[in-house]
């Protein structure tokens, strides 16, 4: 593996001579960057697409820039801001919603890919004063701190319990062929797609365990 190798950094059609090698070796930087000659990307108008979604039981007919994710559709177009944008790259879980009953990251799917789909967001589970049992359990067990990952955690946990019920195994299921058990380890593994930087995990598991116990 060589260090200090000359190479070029590039940024979309724009070549920049960098001093990376020079920086590493203490040598002189490149005197002058050169601007790339590549043509500008076309300033094409966004393709608008029609899509119809059923969100929390309510049908919405929308015309959207095809690039609009399901998450941004909820947050920016329907003003359902309960679903959060923590990373926009499927790396945190704050955007978790249920589509036709299954939990997904709404940041990694386009709204137009969900024609006719039933979407359930945190707003569809319960409201202040009329909390879903999982929401109430999160309050009781202090299963949150800043609250930003919380809607995602709650949506994920509701769908997760359904997955266990449906017999979907997990990474920590000891016996693949047996029905999965409702243990703390199972809950932890299955909820690992929802990061909580405040670190409320221990309490979240207790909240979920209580709700699962009541359902069982």
């Amino acid at each position: 593996m060589q260090e200090g190798k000359e190479f070029q950094l590039s940024r979309r059609g724009l070549a920049i001579v960098t001093a990376a090698a020079a920086a590493a070796t203490g040598g002189p930087p490149a005197a002058q960057a050169q601007t790339g000659a590549a043509a500008s990307p076309p300033a094409s108008a966004p393709a608008m697409e029609k899509v119809s979604l059923v969100v929390n039981g309510q049908r919405h007919a929308l015309e959207l820039d095809a690039r609009t994710t399901l998450l941004d559709t909820l947050r920016e177009h329907l003003h359902l801001t309960g679903s959060k944008k923590g990373c926009d790259h499927g790396q945190c879980g704050a955007c978790t919603v249920m589509v036709d009953g299954r939990r997904i990251y709404s940041c990694l799917t386009l709204a137009v890919m969900h024609e006719g789909d039933e979407v359930t967001t945190i707003e569809g589970l319960g409201k202040p004063g009329d909390l879903h049992p999982m929401q109430a359990a999160f309050v009781k067990h202090d299963g949150y701190q800043c609250g930003y990952c919380t809607p995602g955690q709650i949506c994920a946990s509701v769908a997760m319990l359904a997955e266990i019920k449906a017999g979907v195994p997990s990474h920590v299921s000891a016996d693949l062929t047996a029905a999965p058990q409702l243990t703390a380890d199972e809950i932890r593994e299955r909820m690992s797609g929802n990061i909580c930087r405040c670190g409320a995990y221990s309490n979240i598991v207790e909240a979920i365990t209580e709700v699962a116990g009541r359902q069982a």
Partner: peptide, 19 residues
């Protein structure tokens, strides 16, 4: 094909595997 089931379950997260 336990190795396949195990590999899938070791990858990503419930949300990603659903998609």
């Amino acid at each position: 094909y336990g190795v396949l089931s195990r590999a899938l379950l070791a990858g990503a997260t419930g949300q990603l595997r659903n998609k």
